[in-house]
């Protein structure tokens, strides 16, 4: 069976179940690269241009890891998925950057995903997939439909608070899982904001999410807010951002600040990320307006786990202290 490698990076965390299903209905196997490791990161650093953000470097590392063990590598060009905004320009140029930046690659499967025009967008996508795999457009359309259903189930699980990894397991095994218990919400509730590939790549962020939970914090992420709600918040701004994942993060920040009792915000931002410079400042100003404690964790290739943990602990201490004082 023809195998298609999918790098476990960037949009993987958002759309893997969808593509897995589509490929399966076409009789192809979607093979993931392993979880990020030091070796993958190092490989990415050596392959990619120095000034790129870490998530892209990690993506390059995952592509390299797949080299030689799959027939094709999946590097989608994500342009637009639903809300009229586009992806960060690095997503827009991703297949070109990989193609011209790396050597000895197997062929890329690089469909352009632009769903701004609903019907036409899906048909175009189906055509690209059909061309790439010599299948009939009808069977591809059926595959896409099935993929959408699985994707909806996946997003539903994320809404309930499962992490992508947990949700994928549940979909895979069919077993009902239980949302990791945040403890008895002893310390408080923190909105953990960041792109899926920053929040759920445990290697990159030094296990941030489980660390927070272990500290007795109830963690809320952008994935736990329905997209519709996120975007009502974005539309309430004089001008929304241009980038999909950034709007999700900003929208979640606004939502949690305005409509949920939270005790703090942790923004996980990436070194040399263009959009984050904007997102981070907007969140900071908004948090200030609501007198909500705000912490930025900047991720780069040298961020040590220890450093992140110390800062998290100090922040959680502060949150706890503020709460106690408020009760007195």
């Amino acid at each position: 069976m023809e195998t298609i490698g999918i790098p476990r990076a960037l949009a993987y965390y958002a759309y893997y179940p969808f593509w897995k299903t589509v490929m399966a209905t076409l009789g192809r196997e979607l093979v993931e690269s392993g979880a990020t490791t030091k070796a993958i990161l190092d490989e990415g650093i050596s392959e990619a241009c120095t000034d790129l953000c870490v998530p892209i470097k990690i993506f390059f590392g995952h592509v390299a890891e797949l080299k030689g063990r799959v027939d094709k590598i999946f590097v989608p060009r994500l342009v637009n998925v639903s809300q009229g905004d586009t992806f960060c320009p690095k997503f827009l140029g991703l297949p070109d950057m990989v193609r011209y930046g790396m050597k000895d690659l197997p062929p890329l499967f690089a469909p352009r995903v632009d769903l701004r025009k609903k019907v036409r967008g899906w048909v175009n996508l189906a055509r690209m997939v059909a061309d790439a795999f010599d299948s009939s457009i009808i069977s591809v359309l059926q595959g896409l439909e099935k993929g959408k259903r699985v994707q909806a189930a996946y997003e539903n699980l994320l809404l309930q608070g499962f992490t992508p990894k947990e949700a994928m397991e549940i979909l895979e095994t069919g077993q009902k899982g239980k949302v990791s218990d945040p403890g008895k919400e002893q310390v408080g509730t923190i909105a953990l904001l960041g792109y899926p590939y920053s929040l759920y790549d445990d290697f990159l962020n030094g296990n941030l999410l489980s660390r927070l939970r272990a500290l007795g914090v109830k963690v809320l992420t952008p994935e736990m807010v329905p997209e519709k709600v996120l975007y009502t918040k974005i539309r309430s701004l004089p001008k929304g951002l241009f980038w999909h994942f950034s709007n999700r993060v900003l929208g979640a920040g606004l939502y949690y600040l305005r409509e949920v009792q939270i005790d703090g915000i942790v923004h996980v931002s990436n070194f040399a990320c263009g959009p984050d410079a904007m997102v981070n400042k907007l969140l900071e100003l908004e948090a200030k307006k609501h007198s909500c404690p705000f912490l930025t964790i900047g991720l780069d290739e040298h961020t040590g786990q220890a450093g992140i943990h110390t800062r998290l602990e100090a922040f959680v201490d502060m949150v706890r202290w503020r709460r106690q004082r408020a009760c007195e």
């Binding site: 960060c88 320009p89 011209y100 930046g101 263009g274």
Partner: peptide, 13 residues
């Protein structure tokens, strides 16, 4: 500019 998104995409190619 350092961290300029479009130029870094260009630079990679």
């Amino acid at each position: 500019p350092f961290a300029c998104i479009p130029e870094i995409v260009a630079k990679s190619i």
